[in-house]
Structures are given as C-alpha cells and as structure tokens.
Design a protein around this nucleic acid. Sequence first.
DNA 1: GTGAGTGATGTCAGAGTCTGACATCACTGA
DNA 2: TCAGTGATGTCAGACTCTGACATCACTCAC
Lengths: 208, 208
Amino acid sequence: MGRWEPNARGRLARAALVLSAEKGYDATTVAEIAAAAGVTERTFYRYFADKADAIFPDNTGLLVRLSAVVTDAVDAGHNPLDAALTAVQELAMYASQEPERTRLNAQVIPAVPALAGRELLRQRQIADAVSQALSHSGVPALDAQLAAETALGVWRVAVAEWARDAQKGALTDVVASTADAARSQTSRVRLRSPTTSSDVAEARPAGQ
Amino acid sequence: MGRWEPNARGRLARAALVLSAEKGYDATTVAEIAAAAGVTERTFYRYFADKADAIFPDNTGLLVRLSAVVTDAVDAGHNPLDAALTAVQELAMYASQEPERTRLNAQVIPAVPALAGRELLRQRQIADAVSQALSHSGVPALDAQLAAETALGVWRVAVAEWARDAQKGALTDVVASTADAARSQTSRVRLRSPTTSSDVAEARPAGQ
DNA sequence: GTGAGTGATGTCAGAGTCTGACATCACTGA
DNA sequence: TCAGTGATGTCAGACTCTGACATCACTCAC
C-alpha cells in the first residue's frame, strides 16, 4: 500500500455526486467534497478542472466506441436511424455499468442550469460523433444529422423516464422500448425503401 | 437628466461583449466591464445574475413571438418543417436588429465552453417552444420535435456560416438559403403528401 | 417649501472558486 | 544510501458572487 489511500479521483467524484444529491450542488463546497474524500481542496483541482467536472463521467473512449458501433451497424445493413440507435443502446450499457451513479446524475444535473448546459455540450459531442460515423459510412450528411439528433432525442426521453420512475426497470430496457416507439412513429413519415411514387423519385436506397 | 447616465444595463452588456471579443471572456473581469460602463462591480450584479448573463441577449418576449409565428404558419397551411423554419427566420430578424452584437456573440460564445453550454440551453428553450406551438396546432408530438430540431439545425449552420464569412451578406439571407437547402434535402427522405405506395400507407395528410 | 419616502447606486465584508509557487515525504532505483 | 519522482499539503491571491447598510437626487404629499 502506498503513502495515501488509492483512487482519490474516484472518492472525489463519488463524494461530489452524493453530497450534491443530498444537499444540492450549489450548497456543496469543494472543501466539503475534498474533506469527504480525505484530501485537501487543492488536490481536488489536481483531478478535476472545475467543480462541475467531478459530476460528469469520464468520456474517454466513449466517443470512439460509439463511432465503432455505428459503423458496424451500417455495415450490417441497418438504416441510419437504426444505426444511430445502436449508439444509444451502447450509451445505455455504459450508463448501466454504474446504475447508482447514473441515477444520481439524472437527479443532480437537470436541477442546475450550469450542469444542464454542460450535459447538452456532452450530448452534442455524442451527436457529432454519431453523425460523422454515419457520414463516413456513406450516409448523406443531412440524413446522418437527422438520425443522430433523433437518436439523441430518444436518449433524453428514455433517461428522463427512467430517472422519474424507478419501477421502469433497467435503463437499457427503457431505451429499447423508447427506441421502438420512435421507430414506429418515424416509419409513418420517413421512407424506409425506394418506391415508384413520383413524390419520392429522388429517394436513395435505404442501405446506402 | 437624472442623477446617473441612463441605460446602465445596455452599457454593461455592450462593454461585456466588446471587451470579451477584444481580450477573451475569461480574461475580462467584471470589475473591468463595470468600469468601462461607468458603474461599480456591485451594480453589474444588480442587472445581471452572473457574468455570462451580460453576453446573452434578453429573450423576454422572444419565445412568445416564435410560438405565435409558428401557429400562424401552420394555420396558413404550411407543413411542420416550413412552419418551424418561419420561427428561425423570425429569430434571424431579431438578431438582425443588432447585427454587430450578433456578430460579436457568434465570435465570443463558441470559444468559451461555459457560454456554449448556456447557448445550447437557450436553443433548447427555443426548440421546446417551437415544438409545443406545433403540437398545439395539431402536429403529432414526434413530428413536431423533429421539425423543431431540424429547424434549429438550420439556425446553427446558418449562424456559423454567417459569422465565419462576412461576405455572405445579411443573416436573414443566409438563413433563407440554408433553409432552402434543408428543405430540398429533406424532401428526398420525408413525405410531403400521401401516396398510394404500400410503404407509406400509414402516412397522415401533410396539413393535419 | 419641507420632510418622508423611493430608487439607483456606492461601500464594505465575506464566502466560495480556482490557480501559481513552493514544501513535504514515502517510495524507487542506481 | 542518496538523489530523484510523484502525489499531496500549505499558502497567498485574484476573481466571482452576495448580503447588509449607506448615500443622495428626485418625487410626492402636506
């Protein structure tokens, strides 16, 4: 064993989230978080750029993973929306690895504008990654953006529902059923395959 | 004339934006902004909740106006996307009333994550307002969301392009041509009217 | 006209965020 | 054994934001 307890970063992140859930993010000081983790305030800032940083999960590798999942889905013949939705399922699996943390995140973040804004920034990174992965797989840029935005909408709705109602079951299940609902609704207004109708004469093959 | 120069709020907002554009938002202190406006730091916080607040335009009335515009467009027979795009045009007209301010905003905000997050929060409010206006006009919820998100995407692209290239002309024109591009692209993948194709048998009438 | 509000601003103190500079000290490897 | 190394502590200070109280031109009864 070293000179200090290991995993100071993990203890700080956990303390930040638990204290923020208990008494509110704004009412929780960095000094308190540091004390709860058994370090000084200065050490907190060696692990996190700012207070908000301790609330958000580390995204290292996530975007790369999502891109890979989307690319695989397109290669497997899925249409853009379905491919984008596989990324959301992957996101759900990531979150499910730490359900308690995800639950606290969903409780703390929407209540604080500064954190909500940061979450939107994170979601935008995800949407951009998914959109670019689709584009690189041959999906036209606008279709790619639309699919990514739609998939992200599914994510927002699913997480909100899951966080609101503990009875809903696993996050991955809520995401799956939300995705199904989105698919069945968009299928009514979006083409799935080329037809002979003059209205859709320019439509491209779905798998392209 | 009163005891103090009138329009302290306006002077503060302008000083905040100009100084942030000159030397960077983070490097600009509230004390400097206040001094440039001829008031004290304390007075700054009587007009703005925080430093970032001075950078963003006042949205009072905007959301109401956008909702009205969207409702009118639907009543006039436009499809959901076109109706949502009228809101974006309205947004462009609002911004065009203060082109210099809009230009500085587009320069300062994306460069600072905290401001970018806040801008996304503002855009989400706009998207929600547009989406709800569409819903209240009879557009199915998911279609309404899709139209609102798409329209907002047009806004983001148009503003970025306008800010990047001063040659592009008026913001309203850039928005108009971007909207046209979006329309022509989405028309290829989205139904505009019912057909007899079995693929679209469930499609609802466009004006509903 | 005069005195009691009123409202925008100033002054002051202090908590909290974040950063730079330097000190400490268990551990590691030559 | 002794000079790094690296994670942490200590200290000072700039900056953000807030509460409490003071100031003072202006206004409105009386």
